[in-house]
Design a protein around this nucleic acid. Sequence first.
RNA 1: GCCGGGAUGGCGGAAUGGUAUACGCUCAAGUCUCAAAAACUUGUGGUCGCAAGGCCGUGAGGGUUCGACUCCCUCUCCCGGCACCA
Length: 815
Amino acid sequence: MASYDFKEIEKKWIGKYDGFAGYKGLDFEADKQKFYMLTEFPYPSGSGLHVGHGFAMTGADVYARYQRMMGKNVMFPMGWDAFGLPTENYAIKSGKNPKEITKEVTDNFRMQMRKLGFSFDWDREVNSTMPDYYKWTQWIFVKLFEKGLAHKEEMPINWCPKDKIGLANEEVIDGKCERCGSETEKRTISQWVVKITDYADRLLEGLKDTDFIEKVKAAQVNWIGKKEGAKIKFEIKTPDGFRVKPGMTGRKSETDILEVFTSRPDTLPGATFLVLAPEHPMVKHLMENSELIGWIPGQARNDIKRYLDEVKGRSEIERTDDTRAKTGVFTGIYAVNPLNNKEIPIWISDYVLMGYGTGAIMAVPAHDDRDKAFADKYNLPIDSEFVPDDLIISLIEEKGFGEKAVTYHLRDWIFSRQHYWGEPIPMIWCENCVPEGDGFRVKPGMTGSWIPVPEKDLPVVLPEVEKYQPTDTGESPLANIKEWVETTCPNCGGKAKRETDTMPNWAGSDWYFLRYCDPKNREMLASQEKMEYWMPVDVYVGGDEHNTLHLLYSRFIYQFLWDLGVVPKIYPEPYKKRLSHGVLLGPDGNRMSKSKGNVIVPDVVAETYGADVLRTYMMFMGPFDSTMAWNERSLVGVRRFIEKIFRLVTENAGKYVVTDLESSRLIHKLIKGAGEDLSQFKFNTVIAKLMETTNALLRSGAEVSSEDLGRVVKVLAPFAPFVTEELWNLLGGEFSVHAQEFPKFEEKYLMTDVITISVQINGKMRETIEVENDASEEAVVDTVKKIEKLEKYLLAGEIKKIIYIKGKTINFVVA
RNA sequence: GCCGGGAUGGCGGAAUGGUAUACGCUCAAGUCUCAAAAACUUGUGGUCGCAAGGCCGUGAGGGUUCGACUCCCUCUCCCGGCACCA
């Protein structure tokens, strides 16, 4: 019999799966339960499929195959999240068109995935950079605009001077650009902003409906960062006495009143000063409003100016470094603590952030370390008084100087990017129109307005440009294409200009799981019927790095589409279960990186060992969600296993009609255990069990029927698709093993007449004995008492108690 | 600091209240061979012992239980996420 030759086998079968019906999810299959298995679609980079992709996708593939074998109608799609900076940067360097680059790299990825035997349904392939796809990404944006959830705003943004791109808060890590690592600066640019904060509570609540693993839920909850507390109003003492109530006098309330947010209103009596963020509007107001000149003493005025300049020049990295000594400046004016009427000074410091709460805090040095540090530095008083927590809110509300309030860590989503390789934002600026009601009206000379591109004109196709480089003014290269920018207003037909910003990377991946349900639909993003059939995603496998942002954004968009009635109202969340896969480290135990030279390339491994060995090894390394280092020796161990099972089947195929009892027991035990483990994503122990069974059968020279060999082959099939197809074929099975049902175990083989139980004395294991399956306590006690070597323990004292757990153990308590 | 997850042989790991270390790697001995490799067989937690066997042993300490890797409390360390977020 020939030995295991993976090259031959993989070559023989690989083509048979092109267009193979068994891997396709059938819309509306009535006889079967649907199962939507999703794994993140990759960003196709020039360096090809990474072994990390291979690992995650193999896990998802194994599960999808298992579900198919369990009789489900499985949709397991794949696509390309292909907009993004690396491609753009490569285009800038090489002068190649990003479209062509994307075509090349996706072809390469697809070929690599085919080699690794992934059972994707290629009929459903999507590509976020194709106009027929991003038409709907743009359409969703228009809907956000129409519902008042998108608007353009002058916003200080994080600016990466190297990539020349504005970044969302979440794209800045430790004050550095997520992509290139350069330190970011603050710049004020007019940006599209999406009001995800309107959905903060929904996004929090919705988690209760899901079956996400704990750490994923925690990541979402943390990011949303809901905090309950109170907003408290402090009156400002003016030079001419106290202003009593907002709105009661000629002056605007903002002049007199400072509002702070606190999660500890009970510490209000201990508030000994107020601190404003340098960007707080009150600061500007006090400094620039001529009416208020004189409020702030001259010296303080100079100090404030100097401090504001100092802060402005400070990088994001410095500002968020909490080990840095606190800095600040006294404004020279005072506020009044509404609880005890004490006058407390108002300071400005950059440890208070404008983006959170109200941008102003009441400082309670007795209860807060940061306030304490500030108080110590500037010799401010400390007061540890507080009032009982349960009384304070009602007291505050009763007296009218504050109210219960909730604040969130989650910020609105900056949606503009000044780059070429992204979805154009489908908006047009018209000087002559203004919004009115649900629509627009022609009213020249007024403010002008942003008008969405009508659905019939979508998609706004990304035009070809000569240079992909962002402009130095911070505008996208699209701004240089005059004939594209200049257009007509959809409302008045007059001259108008297109938006030149493009969308962030996340936009295309927000809703791709919906498109898979109906990838070729030209009328809508997906038909109701198809979404109704396939949604929600049953299992979503992805990386930890997407547990906050991608997950949150896509849940938000789904909830928004739900409100629009675009997605069917079956399940309020897009994903039922979210699972995060582990990380593969290089052989040296470090993260794989080109500079460390420890990168494992899946193609190379597959060339040497075969796709089956590679896949099986990756699933055997450890738990699917853990971090593991690559180990070539263990890989060889898995190759030995595949060779053994190959030998077991080829040597016994067609030889026996009936399997001996002992072997049947082993095989049925395997089927039971493997099924349980597979359903819980415990892939490593499935393989361990397969190894155990294979070794035992080979060692005993068992007589195993072809039918039973087939059962073993089927258990291995999700892991090693090629070799199992070959073995299945050899056993006389019809193509394909991957269209077979997962074997079922028979209870009768799991029962044995004689079982081994442990004998414990005072809880300590002393001996194992063989007893009849259903032996009574008396019988077991009898047996034990006859064992000579146990006498010394049993006679050491009186037997106080005997605990007999049938089938497991008997414990004698001797004292 | 907050949140989440961990800590088991020389190594990756298994065991969710009942025989700790399954499975794989490593290492050793043996079979085969002129020899080596591969393959196969056996062994491989520590310690005492010629042996039979004993004692110890799942990060540390305590607790619950007839019995704890597993449940509870306290602590240490490691990994991941978030963070001058009031």
